[in-house]
């Protein structure tokens, strides 16, 4: 997991370093952000000192109303040796006493011209993404009609060949062979390629090919939400494959259950078309049209009718 340091915030956001520049290499160890309002009153019992501190208009206004001695005491307690930084929003002026304390304890003070709520949400998003649970899976990730399909299966079953055919049919390759997956929120998985092998596809007999230079920028994407999993496996005579599509199988990646279909591979089966249709059918289901269920209802009606005719 990549470490996040205070200087990463400076590089990624519209922030200016006002004081404490000796501390810009401090590590931010949590994505939580603290607004030290209660601390301004002098109550430091539960002060979350390891978090990034955010001072908005209210906190600053209260601070300015304090006596000089109180101000000095508060900022000294705010600037601990593990506090990664203090962000002051709305482009507010920063009092001398705060700057002095920050310089002395090497806690960076960063100023943002934006409103407090915006700053909180953007910082949280950034930190959450960096601290998101992370895993890597052997498979191929392709964007098919806007549906992120993760193709899994044993080595040599034909994942990369299928991906190539899908790209040729106008779909987009995200990652081949190894897919890095991070979880955002509770229910979203985002997949991307390891930087070294981005846009590359390995085809037995051809070697490594570059999909972007061969097929153009429209044939690749850098990341994509994973919506479904297609598991390819060599056709097993004894195994029963899904015939109806009434039940939805899932696979758990980190905390998220992703719909999964197992497709048996046999010479002469055009996997690219089958996967393409699986993606379209997935979209259709999410739009509320479920062919299998509709059929099942039709069958019920027909059987009922037959029964009535018999009686």
């Amino acid at each position: 997991m990549a470490m996040v340091r205070t200087k990463d915030l400076l590089e990624n956001f519209n922030l200016t370093l006002v004081a404490g520049k000796d501390g810009i290499h401090r590590e931010i160890i949590t994505s939580d952000i603290s607004r030290p309002g209660i601390e301004m009153t002098g109550y430091f019992k539960y002060y979350p000192k390891e978090r990034l501190q955010l001072i908005g208009k209210t906190e600053m206004a209260y601070f300015l109303d304090l006596t000089f001695q109180e101000q000095k005491d508060r900022v000294e307690k705010l600037c601990t040796d593990i506090t990664p930084g203090i962000v002051v929003t709305r482009g507010m002026d920063i009092p001398e006493v705060m700057i002095d304390a920050a310089n002395e304890s090497a806690v960076p003070i960063l100023r943002s011209p934006r409103k407090t709520t915006r700053v909180i949400s953007r910082l949280t998003n950034f930190l959450e993404a960096r601290y998101a649970p992370f895993t890597a899976i052997h498979g191929v990730l392709v964007d098919i009609y806007g549906v992120g399909v993760l193709i899994t299966g044993q080595s040599g079953v034909g994942k990369s060949e299928t991906a190539l055919e899908l790209v040729k049919r106008g779909h987009r390759l995200v990652a081949d062979d190894s897919v890095e997956i991070r979880q955002e929120d509770y229910d979203t998985l985002i997949g991307n390629s390891p930087p070294l092998i981005e846009h590359l596809l390995e085809i037995r007999g051809l070697g490594i090919i570059n999909v972007m230079t061969l097929f153009g920028a429209g044939a690749v994407r850098s990341y994509k939400k994973i919506s479904m999993i297609i598991n390819l496996e060599i056709w097993d005579q004894k195994k029963q494959y899904d015939r109806l599509g009434l039940d939805e199988d899932t696979m758990k990646i980190m905390d998220v259950h992703v719909p999964k279909s197992t497709i048996p591979v046999r010479p002469g089966r055009n996997l690219a078309v089958i996967i393409e249709v699986a993606a379209m059918n997935f979209r259709l289901k999410r739009m509320g049209v479920n062919a299998a269920e509709e059929f099942s209802e039709r069958l019920t009606t027909m059987i009922e009718q037959e029964k009535d005719d018999m009686e």
Partner: peptide, 14 residues
Amino acid sequence: DTGVHARPATLLVN
């Protein structure tokens, strides 16, 4: 009761 519905039909066919 349901007659030969989808699921039992699948079992039969398999």
